[in-house]
């Protein structure tokens, strides 16, 4: 599927936001689903890059991606300008599933992990849920989307590793403190970010008996269930599940992160 680049907006150092308009209808999107992006028309880099859909229009006429320049593929994407075209397939996978009865939701995001919550957090807040968003970044200058979450009516808590803003330390340490101080624990925790962060979030949530959903980022060749490269190990079983089809969002108790 070809998409037209509507805009390419720099965010903080090393991050940018791509806004894309599919040339044919893309279908409904659930926050947490991902698309596979082809970075170039030739064969190096070869594989598509999986990226979580960030903000999007309900009818799928436009969607955004938050990209971190990490290598040659994402470097090529960083140079896209309005009017360029991009080859995209998707959306794929299972997104976050927030049950009606969950009244308070704690979101923990690190780096580009803010992406799936850009639409989800405002939707949950608008639906009357009590939404806490915990954002982790290396420094104040690396924080993403704080304004957007504040504007959406979420309670935003920031942690920076150098202490330049908010809590001085890891976002997972901040989460531990938040859980200690809350009168009632949240009904649900949602996490997206580096594997180490999600592992720590899952451990904290499980200790407090809070159901937790994580979005796995395993290396992926195809994104649609053919390569079997992206699998996750099912906890306590000699079995793997495809992250691209059964995930990327899993209940944290289901798989090894």
């Amino acid at each position: 599927m070809q998409c037209a680049v509507i805009s390419n907006r720099p965010l903080t150092e090393g991050f940018f936001h791509l806004s894309l308009a599919p040339e044919e209808p893309m279908g409904a999107i659930t926050p947490g689903q991902f698309v596979m992006i082809r970075c170039c028309d030739f064969t190096d880099p070869l594989l598509r890059r999986p990226m979580s859909v960030a903000d999007f229009e309900p009818d799928g006429s436009r969607f955004g991606l938050i990209v971190q320049t990490a290598g040659r593929g994402t470097g090529m994407l960083s140079h896209l300008v309005e009017g360029d075209r991009l080859d995209v397939i998707g959306p794929f996978g299972q997104g976050y599933n927030v049950p009606q009865e969950a009244k308070s939701v704690m979101i923990v995001a690190g780096g580009t992990g803010v992406a799936p919550f850009m639409t989800l957090a405002p939707t949950l807040a608008a639906g009357g849920k009590n939404v806490h968003v915990l954002l982790g970044a290396r420094t104040k200058g690396h924080l993403l989307m704080e304004e957007r979450f504040l504007h959406a009516g979420a309670q935003v808590h920031v942690a920076t590793e150098d202490g330049s803003k908010g809590f001085d330390g890891l976002v997972t340490e901040l989460m531990g403190k938040q859980l200690d101080h809350m009168d009632e624990p949240p009904d649900l925790a949602l996490a997206c970010g580096p594997a180490g962060m999600m592992r720590a979030v899952a451990t904290l949530a499980e200790h407090s008996n809070i159901p937790c959903q994580v979005s796995l980022e395993n290396s992926m060749a195809c994104g649609f269930g053919a390569c079997l490269g992206c699998v996750a190990h099912v906890r306590g079983e000699e079995r793997y599940v495809t992250v691209c089809r059964k995930g990327p969002v899993f209940d944290s108790r289901e798989v090894e992160i």
Binding site: D44, L47, S219
Partner: peptide, 30 residues
């Protein structure tokens, strides 16, 4: 996909890695 008499779980992860104009895989015949 390669078939065996019994189903197979395949290899531990990571199973794939991109290379110049190619990729490495060690799926393990899942």
């Amino acid at each position: 996909k390669g078939l065996s008499l019994q189903s197979r779980a395949g290899n531990p992860i990571p199973r794939i890695c991109e290379t110049p104009s190619g990729m490495l895989n060690a799926i393990g015949l899942q």
